[in-house]
Design a protein around this nucleic acid. Sequence first.
DNA 1: GCGATCAGAT
DNA 2: CACATCTGATCGC
Length: 466
Amino acid sequence: MPPGTPYNSLVLPYSIRVDEFTATLIPALHLLTHTHSDHIVGLSSKSFGSVVICSHDAKEMLLRHEVYAERALHEMELRGEKMRTFRHLKVDPVKGGDGSVFYVGSRDLLKPLPLHTPTEIELCHNERVLITLFDANHCPGAIMFLIQGNKGSILHTGDFRAEPWFIESLIRNPLIQEYIHTPPPSQVHARFNWNDYVPQGSKSSRKTLDAIYLDTACVLSPLVVPTKSQATSGLIELIALLPPTTVFFLNVWTWGYEDILKAIAASFHCKIHVDRYKHSIYMAISDPCLKSIVTRDASSTKFHACERFDRCEHVAEETDTQHSKEKGKSDGKHVVYVNPVTMGVSGWSLYLSEMKDKLKKGEIIHSLLVPLSRHSTLPELRSFVSLFRPRRIVPNTLTPALKGLDWLCIDKIFEDCLSPRSPGPTRRREISAGSDVVEVMKDDIGDTALKNLEGRGALEEAERWA
DNA sequence: GCGATCAGAT
DNA sequence: CACATCTGATCGC
């Protein structure tokens, strides 16, 4: 998932590459954690010809993948056949009229493994690894990989959200339990009784992960973010305060916001209108809940999650203000946009109470925010890492604009969450970065990148750890 | 010329 | 808004 991935996306010391498929480096084995576009770089190349291990859902999503421009053409009926970006990954054998079958050129490169099922995979002659898939709580089909072999055990999280329930489910899971070293922090898991899950006297059978390859997309955010459940239940409260004639456009602009659709459908006993493309994906993947809550009938519901740039008539963009005002008044319908955002727990409770006041006063609003985070921020990451106390942390992504400052910080950030590394010499270079490094780096960063970093408080956070 | 890769904006 | 996506420029065979 370039740019900014350590070790060219390799899971060292194995010749296994995760979420990067460019031809510049061919490993013994390719893994794919999920199908967001920054994780499938190189896969669309027609010359790609290696086996890729992924989840069943990721395979279905990839083979049905259509970029927006092509979906629009299809809708205008300018393109009869759907243009599937990854068609070359699965080419069926050709059957002759006489019943003969031609296998030349046929292929089926995506190899799905079931979750929670350790599977032996041969890297090369003599070297085998056990690979186990765990759901990553990031988007449909997204998984983490546990890699076990004679060169050590490594957990690759891909992109993930380590909410409290997620951590509890790992603690309960015998396939990863043996790598768990410490109870989770009590402030995050007040209800959790460690002794219920970890057998007494089992210390001797405990193993240590050599590394966690960690989703560091939000590692420099110190915010405590709401759980997905807190986010959706707050949104439900707000929606309930709006007039019953209100129509909603749910701006679920990428895979991973399905909890919003599910919460609304469950609370208001209705379906969600989705476009042809989303519908085809949701019907093809394994989540039975998604299948049951979506509809192609736009008139059957006031909740719409159709194409962002080609919305249905009920939530269509209103171009002529004058006209739309009159129209809006005449039929009493009002469109409210629901937008996922990044927000901390305190910001969320403030927003909730302010918005409830506004709505109770009957104030007209045009959008509702919902803080549904698909990545863990620093507090959750530290809880997650503390659980395993791995020997080291490798960031899955680095921010190119930080020029290596984030990579330098990682050891310090997780210093108190790691196990000691065995021999001295294997330790990476000492952290010697000071504020002068940060100053030099600032001069080097482009204006837009710098503003972006400052806006998220990431620079400040990096300086704090450097 | 085409596809692959990158930077910028949303 | 969003760290994922689209667009248009640039690189390279």
